[in-house]
């Protein structure tokens, strides 16, 4: 079967003006590749500022006007042109945004769920979808500021589930929720995937992502450094030094911090962006780094663990 979403060599950059006149291209995402299959939850894990939200906006075709996108996007086998993504977004491809600020502060929940439609069918549908997420019919009459954090999150999911999407993109859907509430929210995404949709879960929280994801793409400074199966993590089959470091930084795995910091967009040198922080780097790491398949996953590293040793 065709994957729901294929992203190949995606690059996104911004045009910036320095001192008013000097134009500069600021690359934020470089050569990113990723696939999401139907019925699958694919997680994209990366730290703040690594370009996760931009990836989501790029797929939806809603990048800011001063940005430039290159590469290949395919939805269910067909190229995702700007025109096609405009036709699909909101119906086939839906977004669950990060927080309550993505709801119109002056519009009641009901009309926001229905997105401008007023017919009886739309009403019945918004009722049903609220109920599905444990929200009563009275929620329709509330304004966003009257929702609790968890309710707002469920309303946002409801906006997406009110359609029957082929692809759901969730951008950081759980910040500010305690572990149990976050687990429940993620459970809803698993459910949507189990019904046949592809789910792209974007988060900085590896631990939470692993609770529902089938596979994980690890994002570093605008690049996917590794695509791994979820089971690879606990089985110790990780490939990229950064993925390993992320895994070891989790509380239950020793809480080992990674020294250094992720480079800012435009400040990466050539070659591997992780090299300055990498224990396995050599001089060769400043050159071109190809992507290769190792143990059923993909990694962008010259010296992956589980591959040949340096």
């Amino acid at each position: 079967m065709e994957p729901v979403l294929e992203v190949k060599d995606l690059s996104i950059s911004f045009t910036q003006y320095q001192g008013g006149t000097r134009r500069r291209e600021l690359p934020v995402i470089r050569n990113l590749s990723l696939t999401v299959e139907a019925g699958q939850v694919a997680a994209v894990v990366g730290s703040s500022g690594s370009g996760k939200s931009l990836l989501a906006h790029g797929i939806l075709g809603i990048l800011p006007y001063n940005s430039h996108m290159e590469g290949e996007l395919r939805y269910k086998g067909q190229p995702l042109t700007p025109k096609r993504s405009e036709a699909l977004r909101g119906r086939e491809i839906v977004l669950v945004p990060q927080g309550v600020t993505y709801l119109d502060p002056l519009m009641k929940v009901g009309p926001q769920l229905r997105g401008g439609r007023r017919d009886a069918q739309a009403k019945a549908r918004s009722r049903a979808v609220l109920e599905r997420y444990g929200l009563g019919a009275e929620t329709e009459e509330l304004y966003p500021f009257e929702l609790s954090g968890g309710m707002a999150r469920r309303v946002l999911i409801a906006t997406a589930a009110a359609q029957s999407p082929g692809l759901l993109i969730a951008d950081e859907p759980t910040p500010g929720l305690d572990a149990r509430a976050a687990g429940r929210i993620l459970g809803h995404f698993r459910e949507i995937a189990d019904q046949g949709a592809g789910v792209l879960l974007i988060t900085h929280d590896l631990e939470l992502a692993l609770t529902i994801a089938d596979k994980v793409a690890v994002f570093y400074a605008g690049e996917t450094v590794e695509e791994a199966n979820a089971s690879d993590f606990s089985a110790g089959r990780l490939r990229h030094p950064y993925t390993n470091a992320l895994w070891n930084a989790l509380p239950q795995n020793g809480f080992t911090p990674i020294p250094g910091a992720q480079p800012w967009p435009g400040e990466e040198g050539s070659g591997c962006p992780f090299a300055p922080r990498c224990p396995r780097r050599t001089e060769a790491c400043v050159g071109e780094i190809p992507v290769r398949s190792v143990n059923g996953g993909r990694v962008r590293c010259l010296y992956p663990e589980g591959g040949e040793r340096p």
Partner: peptide, 17 residues
């Protein structure tokens, strides 16, 4: 430029709407 307008666009609302 607000988040809610970005989301409205993500949901397929037209510029006029």
């Amino acid at each position: 430029e607000s988040d809610y307008v970005l989301f409205a666009r993500a949901r397929g609302e037209s510029k006029t709407s």
